[in-house]
Design a protein around this nucleic acid. Sequence first.
DNA 1: CCTACCGATCGGTAGG
DNA 2: CCTACCGATCGGTAGG
Lengths: 208, 208
Amino acid sequence: MNSETSEKTTAERLPQVALELFAARGYSGTSLADIAGRLGIRKPSLYNYYSSKDELFLDLFEKSLDQWREASRPALDSDGTCAERLRRHLDSAVGFAVSDPHTTALCRAAVSQVSGELAERVQTLIDDHRREYRERLRQVFVEGMETGEIARRPPKILVLSWQVLTDGILTRQVFLPERRSEFLEHLDDLWQIFWAGIASLPPGATEQ
Amino acid sequence: MNSETSEKTTAERLPQVALELFAARGYSGTSLADIAGRLGIRKPSLYNYYSSKDELFLDLFEKSLDQWREASRPALDSDGTCAERLRRHLDSAVGFAVSDPHTTALCRAAVSQVSGELAERVQTLIDDHRREYRERLRQVFVEGMETGEIARRPPKILVLSWQVLTDGILTRQVFLPERRSEFLEHLDDLWQIFWAGIASLPPGATEQ
DNA sequence: CCTACCGATCGGTAGG
DNA sequence: CCTACCGATCGGTAGG
């Protein structure tokens, strides 16, 4: 047992190294030789850990979705008002994207850069993930409307607007990583604008 | 002269075909043989039109940025209130992304999938484009604050919130093209929420 | 616009 | 975890 040493095994480094490369250069832009090179081993040795490039990528993507869920979901299930829960959820989502940019970038690569059978398997994972997330969001908004915290609107609209907000923030995180501090600094302003829009009555509605 | 026939020349079809492939499969995911195959010619014949894969991609990207600018910019320069101009701008931006999804997707691929010298040249084009766009947006918001149409806030925040809104919408357009109708249908709802948030007073401000 | 071809690299296998 | 190797494909060139 050499668990008392601080050195990581190749098995531990492989997913981390591969994640970084896929995130930075995309699926086709990353070769198995690149990955092996960074690990200090030869390409064929990778097949002791994964049976193909596709399996490696898919495993990383699956883990990425799980990490995303674990990082951002608890805030939605927490106690407090609808606003408090959504605000915490936004914090954890952006915090995760900032602290783990490779994982976020890999998810982007997965939905836009793969094709063939791999694309179908990726799509299945995404569809499940999105369905679950959309449903949970919907519940939170419905609760907010029932307690009178936010104006009554079709839940679909509220969910859509939330997804636009977070997609917009995370997209800029991925594409403009050098502006990371800008977001942490101005996240509360963005939230205030969004929440004021959400809480306000839609044009056709009548005040109670 | 055969301009009376409806058949397009290879020179005309090449950029269109290459754009579609780069948009769908990404930079590394698209080979010159793929492009030539779709055109019904052999790979080396492409070099009669472009000197390299990078030049082809960069030319398409430059054209895409120009088209984007031409499609969305006039609304910002048009007459009317700040709200009217921004609303028209949103319409033209989303309209362009819907009618020309390949162009939008190519811009995404350009910022996330290329490396080396090509990446530097892409970055220069993007930086110029963004600087110009950000400055124009800022002007529009400042005008809106001066006429009292929107609450006073640092212009930086307003520009950022706008970019988050449009990035969020366009990202979903690119990644979920099958939901295109959802956006055209609910665009006005998203606008109403955003505008209510923008027009409302920030928490610390005092009513005049 | 073509054929013929280049060296380099791709994902992956055989066999140890 | 390695060497040696596979057929296929990559971007690109020579020469017409």
